[in-house]
């Protein structure tokens, strides 16, 4: 039996728009993922703690506020602090191309830029889950 992929979709930071995150959550569900949705305005520590309790394979973060350079790496650090550095983190929202290198450096495994199609998004989650399974 193939292991069921579990992912968590979280919105760290202060922006209150989660339409995009919800669209992605539904698309992933319709693609056979179990998706834990945690709502808007979460602390990086809350997202990491929820990811550990839910034992997800991947955390998907969305930020529209421009604070991704601070918030995405903070989630990676919190996961490591909880002994869960193996949970992959994918970032999306409004991330300008010039920030991608810095985020990858900080341990974000994949960055989805605003132009990414839903297919590309699903593919990113799928490959991140597969890699973790080894």
């Amino acid at each position: 039996m193939r292991k069921m992929y579990r992912v968590l979709i979280g919105k760290p930071g202060l922006d209150g728009h989660d339409r995009g995150a919800k669209v992605i959550a539904r698309a992933l569900r319709d693609h056979g993922f179990e998706v834990i949705y945690t709502g808007i305005r979460r602390l990086p520590a809350e997202i990491a703690a929820a990811a550990v309790q839910e034992d997800v394979d991947v955390v998907g973060l969305s930020s529209l506020s421009g604070a991704h350079l601070r918030l995405f790496p903070a989630v990676v650090e919190e996961l490591a602090r909880l002994g869960a550095e193996d949970i992959a983190v994918i970032g999306g929202g409004v991330v300008p191309a010039e920030d991608i290198a810095a985020l990858q450096e900080a341990g974000i495994s994949r960055i989805l830029t605003p132009g990414a199609s839903l297919q590309e998004v699903i593919h990113a989650f799928e490959t991140a889950c597969e890699e973790r399974e080894g």
């Binding site: 998706v35 949705y37 929820a50």
Partner: peptide
Amino acid sequence: SGGALLGDRV
């Protein structure tokens, strides 16, 4: 799809 959207945590 076999998938699920689990939102009770919110």
